[in-house]
Design a protein around this nucleic acid. Structure first.
Length: 298
RNA sequence: GGUGCCAUAGCUCAGUUGGUAGAGCACAGGACUGAAAAUCCUGGUGUCCCUGGUUCAACUCCAGGUGGCACCA
């Protein structure tokens, strides 16, 4: 069993895309994207999706494979990637996965518990309840339906409480009874390479990239999606700020400034997520040869 | 040149009837098993412009200086 999934990760704007393409060419393999937003074909500019030239250089998977109208989650990603890897490992001994969506990466590498798909009706009802009656009403209900989960959940985070309630109501069993917290065994080895930059440099790169996105037509892209703004996929940095601009709440310059700031916040959250994974081999994006060596030694 | 106002955190500003100071944003740290580029939690980071004076004690009061703004010449 020498098959290896090489996972390239790190915060946004560190140059993961180019790095992965170079590496894929070097070791002659294909690329799986682990980016939860580059999957949406309508959101190319704002998510820094690789362009045609890049996609033609090395075959990519999970890029533009979804519409913003589609429902998708980390568990579905786990399943699809595993199935694809089963096929790939008959052709390649090493496959590259690249992206910055921590939970999606973990779902593939460590697995995620099986949960039933939630009926959209139940979700909508609960969201109505949250809007009308506030978070306290959700807490009371959760304490009743899943006292176990109630003890450990962040009671200030509506999304977490809503998730627990959705599953508990849907199945008639407490949400916590589905959680095993057990890591799943994989039939391949996993090698994690993290790209890291000093904070100051990272922030400069983010600012520059946002300006580039605007030059490449981000505003026009967002304008087209504006009527669909309520879709979850569009609750994304780079789009939500422009929607506020279209609403007339802020001006164009302010929107661009906010995109930069919110991208910085996003990068920080990614860094925090990755920090707790001791298996990541951190390198500077310029240290390509070091990565090659890590791959050969593995 | 004269008069007036201002000078406090990275920024915008509050405040202390004299006991070394606090908001928003920025920024930093963290949580996170299904919509995750989402959602949520925590933290003040300071030569209070400078130099003297008064005082047990000055960021606060007084004088001078420096810088900024406004008005008058």
């Amino acid at each position: 069993m020498n098959n290896t999934l090489i996972t390239i990760l790190g915060p946004t704007a560190t140059g993961k895309t180019d790095f992965a393409i170079r590496l894929a060419q070097k070791i002659n393999t294909e690329i799986i994207s682990s980016d939860s937003r580059q999957m949406y074909r309508e959101m190319k500019i704002g998510t820094a999706t690789p362009g045609k030239i890049e996609l033609n250089t090395v075959p990519h998977h999970f890029i533009g494979n979804l519409s913003i109208h589609d429902y998708y989650n980390a568990s579905m990603f786990e399943e699809e990637v595993l199935s694809l890897l089963g096929e790939f490992f008959t052709k390649f001994s090493q496959v590259i996965m690249v992206g910055g969506s921590g939970m999606y990466i973990d779902a593939v590498c460590e697995g995620i518990d099986e949960l039933p798909v939630v009926d959209p009706q139940i979700r909508m009802k609960l969201q109505e309840q949250y809007k009308k009656e506030g978070i306290e009403s959700l807490r009371i209900q959760l304490k009743l339906l899943d006292p176990e989960y109630y003890k450990t959940v962040d009671l200030k985070n509506p999304n977490r409480i809503l998730k627990g309630l959705e599953i508990s109501i849907m199945t008639g069993k407490p949400y916590s009874s589905f959680l095993t917290k057990k890591k799943k065994h994989r039939e391949f080895r996993i090698l994690k390479i993290g790209l890291a930059l000093p904070r100051e440099i990272l922030y400069q790169k983010i600012d520059r990239r946002v300006d580039l996105m605007v030059e490449s037509g981000l505003i026009e892209e967002a304008r087209k999606l504006y009527p669909l703004r309520s879709l979850n996929a569009l609750n994304t940095v780079g789009y939500k700020e422009l929607f506020s601009y279209f609403d007339g709440d802020i001006n164009r310059a302010k929107a661009i400034e906010l995109i930069k700031r919110n991208t910085r916040h996003f990068a920080k959250r990614q860094i925090t997520w990755f920090k707790r994974d001791p298996k990541i081999n951190w390198i500077h994006p310029d240290e390509f040869e070091k990565a090659v060596k890590i791959c050969q030694d593995s």
